[in-house]
Computed example of a mutant assay.
Amino acid sequence: MIRIDERTRIVASPSSWIEGEAERQLRATAALDGVRWAVGMPDLHPGKGHPIGVAVLTDGVVYPHLVGGDIGCGMALFRIELASSKVHGERLAKRLRGLEGPWEGDSADWLRASGVESTSFSGSLGTIGGGNHFAELQAVHAMVDGARVESLGVRESTFVLLVHSGSRGLGESILRAHVERHGAKGLEAEGEDGRRYLHAHDDAVAWGRANRALIAHRFAASIGAELHPLFDVCHNAVLPHDGGWLHRKGAAPHDVGPVVIPGSRGALTYLVEPLGDGLLCGHSLAHGAGRKWTRSDARERIRERFRADDLRRTALGSIVVCDDKDLLFEEAPEAYKRIDRVVGDLTDDHVCRILATFRPLVTYKTRHTTR
């Protein structure tokens, strides 16, 4: 644990690398009016004005910028039924097509089942998007607590599908509307503008959850597999907590049971269970490995060492489906921190324990529809 001052800390070992700009942004966030405390996760890294990998508790005020534009972004884990004999990375990857285009089903009905009305963004429902979002088929790598993991519906022979995506353009439109009216200011949570934002925010959170479920449905249908939801957690949101408002930007909840913490596309995913009362870690956990290099730095550095085709198969032997060359370089495993170190910081501070690890088989990011 790195304690910066009485209101600011980072759940990381002093030997773990935290970028100076990320720490500066964390200090600035803690200094905002109404902030009770700000806690950085071990995957903390700089964002647009405020850091990513942070939990912030405020009194009476909500800050849309602390949630960001991808409101409702999160990760959903599904058990996917496939015979082991059919799990061949390259063959499965070839069958994964058409996930970028509009879904042919009834988006309005799908959203309505999640309590959300259709919007002008419904055409994006069921699509992954860019950046670090993905849908990844995984196999069990190691069972650390077999009894606990099996109670969740996962066995050693189980395959799982991990989906990381959010509210697509909907969340960004909500943040943009706030900026046009209020700039970077916070809102009184009980005021008219605050209630209006929170209502739109809640819709985006539900939209993001419905989006992940539809992505999984389309993924499973494309490879002829059955799908069973395990859990869905959101890591970009604000919600009531301890008489205040808990903002998370790139931070998984500590109070909903087991969560997944994936590494880069060439690394393991960790299934962890929270421990303790959550006070030490801001009632939150890391949501991933965290960027080590900016996107522009990654493009420059990785291009000097690899060709695009080199990055379509990882050191673990998994296949990466990504027809956007810039994205291949930006999301290369080398651009991220080591996930074992990130999770190690959390377990060393006894805020969670490892239940299992999953190994990637096929990571789907984007495919040109003309191919």
Rank of each mutant, 00 (worst) to 15 (best):
G166C: 09
V163W: 01
S122A: 15
R181C: 02
S124P: 00
K94C: 10
R195P: 02
A142I: 02
S120R: 13
L152G: 05
L137F: 04
H133K: 08
V160R: 01
H199C: 06
G186T: 15
V144A: 13
V163R: 03
D109A: 12
F121N: 05
E190S: 15
A177G: 05
D106G: 09
K185V: 05
L198Q: 11
A147Y: 14
R196T: 14
L92Y: 07
Q138R: 07
L99V: 09
R196C: 06
G191P: 10
D145S: 11
V116Y: 04
D109Y: 06
S118P: 13
L198K: 04
R112E: 14
V160K: 02
H164L: 07
S107T: 15
L96I: 10
G126S: 12
H164M: 10
A189M: 03
E136Y: 05
V154Y: 00
Y197M: 06
E190G: 11
M143Q: 02
H178V: 00
M143S: 05
G191T: 06
S120M: 06
M143L: 10
S118L: 07
V154I: 14
T158W: 00
A108G: 09
G131C: 00
R176Y: 06
E172G: 04
L162A: 03
S151Q: 13
R97G: 00
E100V: 03
L152W: 06
S118A: 14
F134C: 00
L92C: 08
F134G: 01
G171I: 11
S165D: 06
G186Q: 12
G105W: 08
G153A: 08
E172Y: 09
N132Q: 10
M143I: 04
A147W: 13
T119D: 14
A189R: 10
G153V: 14
E150D: 10
S114K: 15
W110L: 11
E180Y: 12
L187P: 00
L137E: 00
D109M: 09
I128V: 09
L111Q: 05
D109V: 12
G171R: 09
I128K: 05
G130L: 09
G129N: 11
K185C: 01
D145V: 00
N132L: 08
S122M: 10
S114Q: 14
R168G: 11
G131V: 09
G115L: 11
K185G: 00
E188F: 13
G98P: 13
E136R: 10
T127V: 08
N132F: 04
S157E: 12
L96F: 01
W110A: 03
F121E: 09
D193M: 11
S114R: 15
G183F: 03
H199G: 06
R148I: 09
D145R: 10
E136P: 02
A177L: 06
R181L: 13
Q138W: 00
R97H: 12
E180T: 15
G129S: 09
L187R: 08
W110Y: 14
L125C: 01
E192F: 04
R112K: 13
G169M: 04
V116H: 03
R97I: 15
W110N: 01
V160T: 09
